[in-house]
Design a protein around this nucleic acid. Structure first.
Lengths: 247, 247
DNA sequence: CGAGCAATTGAGACAAGTCAAAGCTGGTGG
DNA sequence: CCACCAGCTTTGACTTGTCTCAATTGCTCG
């Protein structure tokens, strides 16, 4: 899989959901923003502008100026790094509530593309800095979220460095089934918003291997695949055992 | 490479270097501690205890209670995760100034072992929390350091998911040559404190492939290997080109 | 000197990659 | 309404980079 420069359909869809204040934001319960109390919501709302990214559009570019942060309020984003010859590694998928744009230098070290229609909330760097200085609780929350991502990254290193293709797919499907489940039960059935190419570039495999491996998991009765974008987990225990590398 | 449960030589070496205050700490210039001004150094010193970990000893265990944080003041540590069957992925090496022990839940999700003789500074969780509340600058610094580690982790995902064995070794050697160089020039010659097994488990390869690949890089005139633990970079440009995946 | 561990080297096996060819599916326009 | 196109997915046949297994060499320390 190389670069995915799909043409971005330039259809701008009216963005009603963000007309209200941050208090009604769909992402609030999942986001670092909830560190700011309701009474100070106006300050939060004043620091942000909302926007929409059509499928395939790139709103953070590796090497570009790191001048803003994004909070995803709907849709799914792929975060990735490229090698000069086009090899791509997806480092994560960002969904509702994800905070994108942490950078140490003044340049982004990764790119972000909308997979489906993405709504986001944008903070300019200086405004976010001011907000964090005003609300240490938000900085603390940001540290928590970042630590949590670092741990997920370490888990992914284990996957990329030491797991087989079967184990990678099993781990991926288990993780996706828990996506946004919070403390609720992981889902038995769920949609995969990304393509086989995205999954391959996330798991360090090729499209063909992803496809073949999913087919095999289906044949073995661990999962069902109603359509390419939908998964049903039939044997969760079996899949989890596989994901842990047992068998 | 499976687990590395070398017997920890139980030799306790007197720890003169830490008898003084944090102001004289070797790690201070590299550490998050420098966010605390000199005038408040006493508070910092009061929150910590120092310790020594002999080579091979494990001082953070995956699944263990995350009750403390460690700041490395000398030596090198390997951070890793294990699969139940013993496959190991080293997620990083921590040297002087590294801060180890961030955890989101109350359990560690990784292990840490001393490679050589390690001196550290230990903060209990509640004491660190109190310190961070007292000094928001330290929390901010911690966020910076954590973001920086997250970016390094993403770079490593690119390596593990998409680079060849040659490219992995080239990237590793280039990175090691910059280790602790700060803004100074990267070093032409340097020591590798870790074994071939550690390198293999860090790069997602086997010992044999690491050895063969290093031999080949040497034969091609890119590096010299005075002894197994020492590297000389002969053709830095060539090595960097290789690390980027060109050629 | 020699035991024990780390590193190197070789030969053969295999998991995943590459190349190639059909299927499928959703959108467009005649 | 349906044929057709384009892109995604699946499947097959073959290749290959890395792993596995095994033997040898080299180094360190008692």
């Amino acid at each position: 899989m190389t670069t995915s420069a799909r043409l971005a359909t330039p259809v701008m869809i009216p963005d009603h959901r963000h007309l209200g204040s941050c208090a009604h934001c769909d992402a609030r319960p999942y986001s670092v923003c909830n560190a700011i109390p309701v009474m100070d919501m106006a300050k939060l709302a004043a620091a942000t502008t909302t926007g929409v990214a059509p499928p395939g559009s790139c709103f953070v570019a590796e090497g570009g100026k790191a001048d803003a942060f994004y909070n995803i309020t709907s849709g799914t984003v792929r975060l990735f790094k490229l090698l000069p010859d086009g090899r791509r590694q997806i480092t994560g998928f960002a969904g509702v509530g994800s905070f994108i744009g942490l950078a140490v230098s003044d340049m982004f070290t990764f790119s972000a593309e909308a997979i489906d229609l993405v709504h986001y909330c944008r903070f300019s760097r200086p405004r976010l800095r001011a907000l964090l200085d005003d609300f240490p609780a938000m900085e603390q929350k940001l540290l928590e979220v970042t630590s949590s991502e670092l741990m997920a990254a370490q888990e992914q290193m284990l996957l990329l460095g030491r797991k087989t293709a079967r184990e990678r797919l099993a781990s991926f499907l288990i993780a996706e089934s828990r996506q946004n489940a919070g403390c609720r039960m992981p889902r038995r059935q769920f949609a995969l918003p990304m393509t086989r190419g995205d999954i391959a570039d996330y798991l360090g495999l090729t499209i063909e291997t992803v496809s073949r491996t999913l087919t095999r998991l289906r044949q073995e009765g661990l999962i069902e695949i109603p359509s390419a974008g939908d998964i049903v987990i039939v044997d969760r225990d079996g899949l989890e055992t596989l994901a842990e590398g047992l068998t």
